[in-house]
Each structure stands twice: as C-alpha cells, then as structure tokens.
Design a protein around this nucleic acid. Sequence first.
DNA 1: AGGTGTGAATACGTTCACAGCG
DNA 2: CGCTGTGAACGTATTCACACCT
Lengths: 248, 248
Amino acid sequence: MSQQRHGSTPGEADGVPAFPDLPEATIARLPEYLRALHHLAETGAETVSSEGLAAAAGVNSAKLRKDLSHLGSYGTRGVGYDVALLVDQIEYILGLDKNRAVCLVGVGNLGHALAGYAGFASRGFRVVALFDADPKKVGEQINGLTVQHTDDLERIAAEESIAIGVIATPPGTAQAVADALVAAGVTSILNFAPGVLSVPSNVDVRKVDLAIELQILSFHEHRKASLTALPGGRSAPPASGDQEAVGS
Amino acid sequence: MSQQRHGSTPGEADGVPAFPDLPEATIARLPEYLRALHHLAETGAETVSSEGLAAAAGVNSAKLRKDLSHLGSYGTRGVGYDVALLVDQIEYILGLDKNRAVCLVGVGNLGHALAGYAGFASRGFRVVALFDADPKKVGEQINGLTVQHTDDLERIAAEESIAIGVIATPPGTAQAVADALVAAGVTSILNFAPGVLSVPSNVDVRKVDLAIELQILSFHEHRKASLTALPGGRSAPPASGDQEAVGS
DNA sequence: AGGTGTGAATACGTTCACAGCG
DNA sequence: CGCTGTGAACGTATTCACACCT
C-alpha cells in the first residue's frame, strides 16, 4: 500500500527502481518459486493459480500469495499469474540478470564438486576463478579453469570484480580467506566451512553446514523413536508435517 | 517450568527420558553450540559463560541462555556452564550417541564429495552404503565402499537399517529414490536435488540447494547496490548485520 | 464463479531486563 | 557480586477468511 510502482518495467533500472524491503522468509522462498515457474514454463503453461504454483513449490497458497503481494506482483483475479511475467519479476528482484561473477576458494573434496556444479551456471552465476592454498593443486585444470594460489586471491578477486565468494576450505583457514575476500571488496560470502566468520556488517554471509543438517535429522529420529516407545502413547502420531504430500 | 527432570542422567534411557519438545529454531542451533563446545574443550576450558559460548557460536547470549534453558540445562549461576556436561546433554538430545547409519544415493559430482566428507564421521554418522543408477558407476570403490545399483536400494537399506538417506541425484530421479527410501523404512532424508519431494508425514525431509543460497546472496547484492545508488542516500548505510563481528 | 490481494488473528521467535541463586 | 534462568515485551512469520476484481 505504501508504494505501488505498477508502471515500472522490471529490466529498466533508470534511477531508483522502487526496491521494496521484502521479509527474509519471503526472499528465501523466491528461488523456489522461480524454479517451479521455470518448470511450468517448460511444460507450456501460460498462467498458474496460486494453488498450482504453491503446490509446485511445496508451500501453501496463502503463503505464496502473501509473498508475491510483497513484490507488488501482477496476478489476474479469476485467472492467476502470468508465468513469463512472474519469472521476469522474480529474476529482476533477485538480481539474476546481472550474471554475477563467483569465485571458489578451496578445491578439495567439496570444492571440486562445487566447481563443476551445473546449477550455478543455469541460474545467472559465472564461476570465474578457483583458488587453493596447496601448491600441488595450483595449476590444476577444473572445468576449464586453472586453480590459482590463495596468495593471489585478493588481487585477482578485485580485478575480476567478484560479487560472491564461496569458501570450501578447512575450518582453520576460512577466516583468513574471508578477510582476503572482504579486502578485495567482496560483500557476499557463501561459507561451507564449519565455524563462525567475523566480517564487517555490510558483508552478507550465508552458511551451509552439511553435518548440521544431519544432526537436525538425527534429533527428529531420536524424538520419533522416543514417541513410539511411550508407554501410553499411540504407535505413530501424525506429526505436524513440515513437507506434506503434494501429489505430483 | 512444566517439567524439570534434573536428576536424570542423559545417557541412561531406561524408560521415557523426558523428551521436551524444543522449538525448531533452537534445534537448528544446537549443533552449532556443540561444535563451539568441542572447540572449547580442546582448548582445555572446563566452564564457559553464556557470553563466551554465544560469541563462539555466533549468537547473542540471551538467545543462547533461552535455548539451553529449554533443554532444562545445567548451568551454575555466577560461574557458567560445565563444558563436558553440556556436550553430553546436547549429544544426547540430538541422538548423536546412536551412531546412525547413513546411505548416499547418487555418486556424481556432489555425491562423490559427500561420500568422502569427514564431517559426517566426526559426528556420530556412519556412511554404510552408496548407490547409483549408472551401471558404469556400480562397482566403483569410494572411501572403502562399493557403489551398488539403486535397484537394490530398497532391499539393502532395509537390511542395513539405514536411519538417514542422502539424495544427491539429478532432480528427475529424486522422487523415485525418496519413494524407495521410504519403502525401506527410512524416515529421515537429506535432499540435495532441486525440487519438492512428496513423502508421508512421518518422514522428515531437509533440503539443501546450493543454487538457492547464491540467489539469496544475489538479492542482497542487488539491494545493497540499489541503496548506494539512492539519490539522497548515504554511501554505505550500516545494514542490520546478520552475522556481526565476533572478535576471534 | 473463480481466484487474487490483504487486514485481522494467531503462532512463533527474539530481545529485554531483572529476580534469584551460588 | 556475577551469571543463569525466565517472565514480559516486542517483532516477525504464518494462517485465516473474505472483500473485491475480472
């Protein structure tokens, strides 16, 4: 209600493109909507209802409608959302039209896999540099890129105007890598190393820890086991489902 | 206040071990506390204050104290928390003393890296089986395990009483793999494939999508860029930091 | 009708601030 | 006196239910 810039074409960012501050929870779901929309577009759908898109994205329709309403979106009452238009809107909001340069630090087990991960390129990301501290790895060719030494990280990251740095090093070196990235002007970091990174407040850090995910699942296993073992308990109470049946 | 089972030794699960239902947000942070505690234990610390542990885990102390209070935890006022005791408590709650069997489906780029990921074994998880649908990969040895065909997944997963299944296949086959896991009695799934899995409500699914993380960072890059471009805006407003300086 | 957009109601999570214990 | 544990206040996210548009 505060600012509805209906007439602004998304791609055209002349001055200030009316950037709404979306709730974090909404932002985290937009990529999922986008994936679902791309899938729908491939199957030839022109429009989707909130119900349909919500099912494809694994959320309920009320949440989806509220999320989309935040970005002042176009839907047609009685019809639904225009798939192509919504794709453009979300890609614009997420800044995926910018084809951002990504560098990857740490070409071990995991880093090697990330370097070859197709999902990065298929969204608007270009992996443009690989780094490792191990002299034996420097010079190695991975996916058309040559691994460079981390000593050169700061210089090269600045030269290539890297937008996002991905850290896949052992925990001990992660902070030093983060410092180098920050010094090179990188303001977004995706961290796969366990542990806390300390960075200036204008730098965004997202963390992915595979072991943590397993531990959370382990907790739920433990909980489920102790429920079924309950003396007076029913054998399998229908837990409040997090991700319910969606009927593909 | 409702149930404080102070006298119950964690490891001893004779009957019903007073399982509190912790908030999801708390559960998600427990592994982080655990990692910080292990680190502290290595440096020889016997006790920590909420302030100290919070800093090591990257949260503020009020949050940490509330989280720990939920598991009816032992802290000594005026002193802090006993590191060793808290480690035991959290490991018990998370069910990490059960040494759960994990299987990994999809030994491609990412799956290969996961199979060799040290972080799994170092917490209480044993990767006991690897599967792939590609006949060329079946028979391959990775980290001491032989890759088996996904046709045998259901049988083997049941035999080995797998607790957690990790899906690292292409999106197209993820649902079929999930179905097989569920049929084998697996009730926890960690999914690296993009897309929504539909499973019975008693099965927990956690999803990790590397491309989504980058897209979220991209949004924030976009937002930061549009802020600094603001006509009347200051050049770098101190955004409400998500992960602030922690002073290592 | 059919389906979006949205106030109002509810649930959940975080932060404050301090009582009370060691 | 220091630090935990916790009610109360606040803020954020989800869900409901329906007015309103096509």
